[in-house]
Design a protein around this nucleic acid. Structure first.
Lengths: 123, 123, 123, 123
DNA sequence: GTGGTCTAGACCACC
DNA sequence: GTGGTCTAGACCACA
């Protein structure tokens, strides 16, 4: 776990798991690491991991089967794909446009992004 | 998810001033508002403004003349235009590409950004 | 804390900790006193200690783990030993030579320094 | 006048004049620049220059002949040579020794200083 | 008038 | 428990 990052740890964990789901490394129904497992792995307090899981459960991304563990919920992928996308376009994009303006960025500067967008289109 | 990305006040002040410089509203040599003035204007504590100014001075964006005030440094604009741009391409762009990938964003989603980039190009 | 010194408190704290590191009393990885602890110990405001720590973090001398504390960074000793030495030879030594010249100081006046230098050599 | 320096301006002026005296560029009896002259030259407030002169007068380095100007006092050079030297050995040297110790400086690092001291000796 | 430092006390989010 | 931010108010030295 990167302690240098300015994002708080429990959100880093959440984002990391969300990534796994969005990229298909974790599929609906899959079991995610137990709290104590993950806490030991990334050398972090169990409460911190617990907090991530609680947040994700409350977001409807994962389900908790008491005594067994946490599992990726059935609607997780779909829900994330739409919610996070909408949030991105609403919150991040305007900032991005503004930054592109004041920094006088060009299409060339965004080459890697453009390429990725084309790849997405062709799927 | 009310884990708001609300930036802290002293960073907002810094970013606001950086914007003024990058857009030419503040030119090198210009005096920026005194700590007391700005604090009164935006109804914020003097220490908070002071913290912004101290940060910017340390970044080499503004200079300080004892007992007189803070001034936009000569290299401010140039330094910002290059440093912030480089930092953006190094730090932000990869995240952006990754996000575009996992969220399966398309060129259409980025329409506003593309438009801005074209405008920049035509200047 | 010696209030007789002209230096401000937060810089005294920084210099005191730097000394501890350079002399090996604090090793990389060691936890330094929490902001509250130190503030209580030396009877100084928490914010003042915080300011020292923020400065040192920005200098790369110490790292911060959220909710846990500040730790001497891995490169701290090496970085200090080289940076501060280089800075001394670049900034302070010329002033010193100039002062020795205008004050017509002699080798005898610098006896204590010469002795220390010999001790350093024999280690 | 270097505004970037962290020493306060009126002390910079004082030190600059002291240097002129110690190096013989200004001799006892010489007239030093008038307050308004110097203020205009280095683009500084007259009060600031006046403060320097007042300090130096109080130190016995310069004399004020009302309506005429300030003049280097007869004992200026001698007085400075002894006072500043004593102060250096009492205040600065111990710090220097300590710094040499923690930074593990060697005789080689002080080569320029040693050379200057030898030159002083041979005069 | 300006910046600069410090205190005391509060509140927050996080581990 | 930890750091982090902010407020209110004070005092200082300097221009």
């Amino acid at each position: 776990m990167e302690f240098g990052d300015h994002k708080t740890i429990f959100l880093q964990i959440r984002d990391w798991l969300v990534d796994q789901i969005l990229t298909g490394k974790l599929a609906p129904g899959d079991r995610i690491p137990s709290v104590r497992e993950l806490a030991a792995d990334i050398e972090v307090n169990r409460n911190t991991v617990m907090r991530s899981y609680a947040l994700m459960e409350q977001e409807g991304i994962i389900d908790n089967r008491r005594g067994i563990g946490f599992f990726v919920s059935d609607q997780a992928r779909q829900r994330l794909a739409t919610d996070e996308k909408a949030q991105f376009i609403r919150d991040e994009l305007p900032k991005l446009v503004h930054q592109a303006k004041v920094l006088r960025l060009t299409l060339a500067d965004f080459e890697p992004l453009i390429q990725q967008l084309h790849e997405n289109q062709n799927q």
